[in-house]
Write a protein that binds this DNA or RNA. Structure first.
Length: 586
RNA sequence: GGGCUCAUAGCUCAGUGGAUAGAGCAACCGCCUUCUAAGCGGUCGGUCACAGGUUCGAGUCCUGUUGAGCCCGCCA
C-alpha cells in the first residue's frame, strides 16, 4: 500500500507541471498533515512559496493549481483558504477501502522499503568490568527500539554490542578470580561463579583496600596484553560471567539478542589502522604519542586538538578501536548505515572519529555513520540519578522497584474491585506494566534531552504512559471476550463503514502508521511513534465512549469490530516496536 | 577559552518554515439503571529566555546576549 501522502504528492507534482510548465517538475508540493482538523487532513503550502517566482498573488496560484489537480480518487474537492493554503479532506469511501485492505494485512499496510540497506546498530555496548547501573538503561532501550523499527520497515539490521572487554579494569577482576577461584583456570568446564555484581563488589573492595592486590591486578593487565595463556583464560571466564549476568537483565528488560563483538575483537587490526593513517599522511607524532590532528577542534590554548591513536607507551586506546570498528564495518560487514545510540556526552568523540574515518577514506559518500545521542536520566530533584550514598543505582534494583510499584497499584485495584486473581496473573501483569512503564518513559521523550525518572509519573494510569496504552488494548480484548468475537474470522464480506465523527477520526489515524514509521526510521526519534500510539489510544477511547460496538445493528456492528481489531493490532505492533509487551487483561 | 545540547502553560513535555502554539499532570465543573469510569467531555492556564536578522510567513533558520547541562591530550 502506497501511503496516502505519497500518492497526493505525485498528483501535486503533475499538477504543478500542467499548470506552470516543466520547469516546475522539481518543485516540492510542500504537502503536510493539516495543522488543524478544521482545515481537513492534508494541506499544501506551495502557492505562497511561488508568489515571487510566478509574480502572482498566492490565491490565484492556488486556484490555477487546483484546476489541474486530480485527487478525486482520494479527496472531496480541495478548498483554498487564508493566504493560499490548499486544504484536502479525504473521502470516507477512500478511507473505507484502505481500512478494508489493511484488515487482512499482517503488516497493517506498512510496505517494506523498496531498497533495503544493511544497517548496523551499535548497542548497548557497556563496559564489562562494571556493575550494570542506571546509565546502561537508555542505550539498551533506545538501541533495541531503533533496531526493531529499522528491521520491521525492511532493512537488513545487525545488532552489534561493542562491549568494553579489554583494558585496565580487567586486571582487578582477573586478580580476584585468581585468588578466589584458582581452580577455574585449570578447569576446562565453565564454572558458575554466581552473581557478577557480588563478584565485582568483592573485587572492588580488595582493590580499594589491599595494595598487594592492586599490584597483582596491574601485573594481570600486563600479562593479558602480552597474551599470557592462563591470563587470557581468566579474562575469558570473566567475560562469559559478565555476559551471562548482563543477559539476565536484558531478558528482564526485553532486549532482543545481539552479537557481542567487543573491543578485543579489533586487537589484531589496530597496527594496520595506525599504519594506514600513516600512509595517508594523517599521522603526527607529538610528545611520543601518535596522533591525527583534527580540523575544527581546538584545545584550551586555541591549538588544534589531536586524536591520539597510539599512546607514548605503544598501547592503543578506545579511539583506535573505534576507528578499527569503522573500517571493519565498511570493508568487511559492508554496512551502508551505522547507528550509534550513545549518550550525548560523547558527541565530540563521535564527530572526531567520523572525521578521521572520512579523511582516512573508510567513510565514503555511500555509507552513513550517525551518532544518535541521548540525554541523562535524572532524579526528581533534576540531578543525576543516584542512591542515597551517591552511587549509580543498579539497574536490577531500579527495574525491580518499578515492578514492585506496578504490583502495589494492581493489588490495590484488585482489592477495591473485589476481584480474585492468581499469583501468576499478578506477577505477569506487574512485570509487563512495570518494565513497559520504564521503557515507555524513556522512549516517549525527545531522545536528545535529559529526562526525569519518576515511578509515579511513568506508572500513572492517565496520560502519555504505558499503562494508559495497555489499557486501551485491554479494552478491545474485553469486547472480544464479552461478545465471544474471533477477530480472525469476521467473515469474508466484513466491511468497514465510516459514519460517525469518532469513527472517521480513528480511521484516519490508523492509516498514518506507515508515514510515522518511515519518519522514525529516518530521524531515529522513537518519541514520534509513542506520540502516535498515545493519540491512537485517545482516539480509540473517544470512539469507545461514543460508538457502541456489540450493541450496534449489523452491518455497523461488524464494521466497528473491524475498527477495534485494527486498533488493537496497531497498538500491539507499535508497542512491540518499542519493545513493550501487551496484556489481555490487567 | 573552545565545542555540543538545551530554554515553550504552575509542573513534566510535544511541536515537520505555514493559518488561532498543543498534550498530559495539577486545580475546578460535569458524565456510570448503557459493551466502557485505569475512561470521556468541559473550564482555567502562554512576552515560545532576551535582542536583532533572513523570509510572503519564524517557537522552528541565522547572528548576538543571558542562563543551565555535558565535553575538551595519552580512561572509555
Amino acid at each position: 500500500m502506497i501511503p496516502t501522502i505519497a500518492q497526493l504528492k505525485i498528483q501535486f507534482e503533475n499538477a504543478l507541471v500542467a499548470a506552470f510548465g516543466s520547469e516546475f517538475a522539481e518543485t516540492a508540493p510542500l504537502l503536510v498533515p493539516a495543522s488543524n482538523p478544521n482545515f481537513g487532513d492534508y494541506q499544501s503550502n506551495v502557492a505562497m512559496s511561488l508568489t515571487k517566482k510566478l509574480g502572482k498573488p498566492p490565491r490565484a496560484i492556488a486556484e490555477q493549481l487546483v484546476q489541474h489537480l486530480d485527487v478525486t480518487n482520494f479527496c472531496i474537492p480541495p478548498e483554498i483558504a487564508g493566504p493560499g493554503f490548499i486544504n484536502l479532506t479525504l473521502k470516507p469511501e477512500y478511507l473505507e477501502t484502505q481500512l478494508n485492505s489493511i484488515q487482512s494485512d499482517p503488516r497493517l499496510g506498512v510496505a517494506p522499503v523498496p531498497t533495503p540497506k544493511r544497517v548496523i546498530v551499535d548497542y548497548p555496548s557497556p563496559n564489562i568490568a562494571k556493575e550494570m547501573h542506571v546509565g546502561h538503561l537508555r542505550p539498551a532501550v533506545i538501541g533495541d527500539c531503533i533496531a526493531r523499527i529499522l528491521e520491521f520497515v525492511g532493512h537488513d539490521v545487525q545488532r552489534i554490542s561493542h562491549v568494553g572487554d579489554w583494558g585496565t579494569p580487567f586486571g582487578m577482576l582477573i586478580a580476584h578470580l585468581r585468588r578466589t577461584y584458582p581452580e577455574a583456570l585449570s578447569c576446562t568446564e565453565s564454572l558458575d561463579l554466581g552473581d557478577l555484581s557480588t563478584f565485582y563488589r568483592e573485587a572492588k573492595k580488595q582493590f580499594d583496600t589491599d595494595a598487594e592486590f592492586r599490584e597483582i591486578a596491574r601485573q594481570s593487565v600486563v600479562q593479558l596484553q602480552a597474551g599470557d595463556e592462563e591470563t587470557l583464560r581468566a579474562w575469558k571466564i570473566v567475560c562469559e560471567l559478565s555476559s551471562r549476568s548482563y543477559r539476565k537483565i536484558y531478558d528482564l528488560l526485553g532486549i532482543l539478542p545481539f552479537i557481542e563483538r567487543g573491543e578485543s575483537f579489533y586487537n589484531p587490526f589496530l597496527p594496520e589502522v595506525v599504519e594506514e593513517l600513516e600512509q595517508r599522511g594523517l599521522l603526527v607524532e607529538d610528545d611520543g604519542a601518535k596522533c591525527v590532528f583534527l580540523e575544527g577542534f581546538t584545545n584550551k590554548d586555541g591549538k588544534p586538538l589531536p586524536l591520539i591513536v597510539q599512546k607514548s607507551d605503544g598501547g592503543y586506546n578506545y579511539a583506535t578501536t573505534d576507528l578499527a570498528a569503522i573500517r571493519y564495518r565498511v570493508q568487511v560487514d559492508k554496512a551502508q548505515r551505522v547507528i550509534y545510540p550513545v549518550g550525548a556526552e560523547q558527541t565530540n568523540h563521535f564527530a572526531q572519529i567520523f572525521q578521521v574515518g572520512k579523511r582516512a577514506g573508510w567513510i565514503t559518500d555511500e555509507v552513513e555513520f550517525v551518532h544518535a545521542p541521548f540525554g541523562l536520566v535524572l532524579g526528581e530533584d533534576g540531578q543525576k540519578l543516584k542512591t542515597r550514598s551517591g552511587e549509580a543505582i543498579p539497574l536490577k534494583e531500579l527495574l525491580e522497584e518499578a515492578i514492585a510499584h506496578a504490583r502495589k497499584d494492581l493489588e490495590t485495584r484488585i482489592q477495591e474491585e473485589g476481584r480474585q486473581e492468581s499469583e501468576a496473573f499478578i506477577e505477569n501483569v506487574a512485570r509487563v506494566v512495570g518494565i513497559g512503564a520504564v521503557k515507555y518513559a524513556d522512549l516517549s521523550q525527545n531522545r536528545t534531552s535529559n529526562y526525569i525518572f519518576s515511578y509515579d509519573k511513568m506508572l500513572a494510569l492517565q496520560g502519555n504512559t504505558a499503562p494508559y496504552m495497555l489499557y486501551a488494548y485491554v479494552r478491545v480484548q474485553g469486547i472480544s471476550r464479552k461478545g465471544q468475537i474471533d477477530f480472525e474470522h469476521l467473515g469474508a464480506d466484513a466491511r468497514v463503514f465510516l459514519k460517525e465523527e469518532p469513527e472517521l477520526i480513528l480511521a484516519k489515524h490508523l492509516l498514518q502508521l506507515s508515514e510515522v514509521l518511515a519518519e522514525v526510521a529516518q530521524d531515529l526519534l522513537p518519541n514520534r511513534l509513542c506520540q502516535y500510539l498515545f493519540e491512537l489510544s485517545q482516539k480509540f477511547n473517544q470512539f469507545y465512549d461514543r460508538c457502541p460496538v456489540l450493541q450496534a445493528e449489523e452491518p455497523l456492528r461488524t464494521s466497528r469490530l473491524i475498527l477495534c481489531d485494527i486498533t488493537a493490532r496497531t497498538l500491539k505492533l507499535g508497542l512491540s516496536l518499542l519493545g513493550i509487551e501487551v496484556l489481555e487483561r490487567m
